[in-house]
């Protein structure tokens, strides 16, 4: 098991946001976390990587309990996180953005070099010296994934990678994620676009009002239109 989360509860000030969230990701698996805006997807990811100050529960990554670790320690163990709004360092060049993400190689994770990343995202190779602020949204999304991969993670949490991108770019994103999977990376994606999810994922969780309300394979989900309609409103 790559990642296993048990009884995760999170709070922002007085507000209780996540209720006993439990989920896991197997080695080399691509798992989806589906749900509407405000259902708790981003908070789940942020809680796992320690960006939510008030949380309780058990988060086991590669057999080690990281629940009490600070964000940077979790990340340097090989748990990569790609946030929702891309959050590129807009004043830094592509090369510098990648430099921030650079970490030593890990035995149990695929290794990435700049060259390998540039072949995964060919657009980036042409703009190494360009600052992040002068890139289009699609290019920024690729850079933010590449930046996280520079840390040679063994698991990546991708928060809504298709949001706000042109359909054609989303198709490129599908290719990139499938390549990452072939390299042996475990991936968890939060999404609203079920079609995108179908193209890349093995399993899915559905989160609603801070609680996990469905867990199963993609075909399990297709067999339950009631759940799909109730929580994804498709």
């Amino acid at each position: 098991m790559k990642l296993s989360v048990e009884a995760l509860n999170s709070y922002y000030g007085p507000a209780h946001i996540l209720f006993d969230v439990a989920l896991d990701v197997g080695d080399g698996e691509v798992v989806a976390l589906l749900g509407r805006n405000g259902a708790g997807k981003s908070t789940t990811f942020r809680s796992i990587v320690g960006l939510v100050a008030q949380r309780s529960g058990r988060i086991v990554f590669e057999g080690r309990d990281v629940s009490d670790q600070p964000t940077h320690a979790i990340a340097s163990r090989g748990l990569g996180y790609v946030p929702e709004e891309r959050r590129i360092f807009t004043d830094l060049t592509v090369d510098e953005n990648l430099e921030v993400g650079r970490q030593p190689a890990r035995p149990n994770a695929p290794q990435w070099t700049r060259e390998k990343l540039f072949s995964l995202f060919p657009n980036l190779a042409e703009m190494r010296g360009r600052t992040g602020g002068r890139m289009s949204g699609g290019e920024q999304q690729m850079l933010t994934i590449a930046r996280t991969l520079m840390g040679n993670p063994s698991l990546v949490l991708l928060d809504e990678p298709s949001e706000g991108l042109a359909p054609r770019i989303v198709e490129q994103m599908v290719e990139a994620i499938l390549t990452m999977k072939r390299e042996g990376l475990s991936i968890m994606v939060s999404e609203q676009n079920l079609h995108f999810t179908r193209l890349i994922c093995d399993r899915a969780y559905i989160i609603e009002r801070g609680r996990i309300c469905f867990s199963g394979t993609m075909s399990d989900l297709d067999a339950r239109p009631d759940i799909r309609d109730a929580h994804l409103a498709l």
Binding site: V49, L51, P70, H72, A75, F89, L92, E96, V100, G151
Partner: peptide, 22 residues
């Protein structure tokens, strides 16, 4: 310097990339 400039923009992100921002 690169890390500092990155942290200038987004500290949480720098931490999420494995840098001890403290």
């Amino acid at each position: 310097g690169v890390l500092v400039r990155a942290a200038t923009q987004d500290r949480d992100m720098v931490a999420a990339l494995g840098v001890n921002q403290k």
